[in-house]
């Protein structure tokens, strides 16, 4: 299967690979997927508690090139958005951006799940109610 130029670019030069201190109150962590399924994404956001703006975002991903590229794109888009704005990022935006083929759409779904999981982790840490989601799809550490 041929990959799009953008997937290759994000795979070769992934943006924002790394780890934020998950013990900090203003850091939200989302860990989704499973090793047996061949994809695990960890996405973290660091939020400015005054403005609710995402100051920094980092990821680490175990998966194929499309999964790595999807999480890389997600971190790029998260930075500078408020946590409410970030919720508007949908998997289809990622599909479009990277021209993901149909068999790779699950990678974008995983990235969207990771964003939501990271935001919810932040919200719960800060006494906010979690946004609605199917809890069963998420991973508990």
């Amino acid at each position: 299967m041929a990959y799009s130029q953008k997937i290759i670019d994000h795979y070769t030069n992934p943006r924002n690979v790394g780890t934020l201190d998950k013990s900090k109150k203003n850091v939200g962590t989302g860990l989704v997927g499973a090793p047996e399924c061949g994809d695990v994404m960890r996405l973290q956001i660091e939020v400015d508690e005054q403005t609710q703006v995402i100051k920094d975002a980092k990821f680490k991903t175990f998966g194929c090139g499309s999964a790595i590229a999807s999480s890389s794109v997600a971190t790029e888009w998260l930075k500078g958005k408020t946590i409410d704005e970030a919720l508007s990022i949908s998997n289809m935006d990622i599909v479009e951006e990277l021209s993901l083929p149909p068999v790779k759409i699950h990678c974008s779904v995983l990235a969207e799940d990771a964003i939501k999981a990271a935001i919810n982790d932040y919200r719960i840490k800060n006494g906010l109610p979690p946004i609605e989601e199917k809890q069963s799809e998420k991973t508990k550490i």
Binding site: P14, V17, T19, L31, V32, G33, A34, P35, E36, C37, V40, M41, R42, K60, T61, F62, I68, H106, V109, L110, S136, E137, K138, T139, K140, I141
Partner: peptide, 24 residues
């Protein structure tokens, strides 16, 4: 591996089998 959350957990001594993964 630098990019892999599983490798990081392995280095931290976390047993991946003890984690409750969400199968999708």
């Amino acid at each position: 591996r630098e990019m892999s959350p599983l490798w990081e957990m392995h280095l931290e001594g976390i047993d991946l089998n003890t984690i409750q993964w969400a199968h999708h």
